[in-house]
Design a binder for these strands. Structure first.
Lengths: 123, 123
DNA sequence: CTGCATCCATAATGATACTG
DNA sequence: CAGTATCATTATGGATGCAG
């Protein structure tokens, strides 16, 4: 199976890259990937780190990222079970870029806050 | 009004950067910002470019980006009206980073497709 | 401990029709 | 052209119960 010669374009309505982008750039997808950048983490560890995520959404997000080959999930069938999540090489590359985006956005927040205040003022 | 001394953290549940990140990294937020990278565009131009977006979502997304100070909206009250959208400096910085993310993701799609096929195969 | 399954409430999204 | 309004559909979130 080879996809090498295909062109992927997120601007195209039915490109297969669209759902992948939706998963990666989703609210919890971004935070999950970035939270895994400093190494392996367990489920509830991630849950605490990604403040506000529900069990259900974190589980769903991690499975989607695993399916996309960005997150690796390893299970140790001990009692109690130990499930660990980490990034694949592709996942790490994307997480790095997401971190840059987050840093840029957080650095822009002062300007953004001022713009929002001005905008809301005007109505 | 000064926000300079505040720390913004998207990982915190109630940080004001969270909704901004949601807007920027939303399905249509990303594509709208990147579509505006090569200059000024009109509403229906963007609508054609961002394949699959509904009128409502494009309108909503552009308004949110305008409120965040990332997109500039200029109206010429002629008949028919001419409304133009472009990026602000902050918008341009973020759009540049989003473009890098898109390029990275599109370049990773061959690997991702293989991973998805393997994953789906296994169930 | 790590989750999946289910039910329910609410929010986001989309299709369509209509207006200045 | 550039939207808004309305309604239908879908996604998301919270709570709870249960299993390996």
């Amino acid at each position: 199976m080879s996809f090498e010669e295909l062109v992927f374009d997120v601007f195209a309505r039915n490109c297969t890259s669209r759902p992948v982008m939706d998963t990666v750039a989703s609210r919890w997808g971004i935070l999950s990937l970035v939270a895994l950048q400093d190494g392996t983490h367990r489920f509830n560890e991630l849950r605490r780190r990604v403040d506000g995520v529900s069990e259900k959404m974190l589980s769903q997000t991690l499975h989607a990222l695993e399916r996309d080959g960005l997150v690796l999930r390893t299970v140790q069938s001990t009692i109690p079970p130990r499930v660990e999540y980490s990034l694949t090489d592709a996942g790490r590359r994307i997480a790095t870029k997401l971190t840059e985006l987050i840093e840029l956005l957080e650095a822009s927040m002062p300007d953004i806050s001022v713009a929002q205040a001005r905008y809301d003022e005007a109505r």
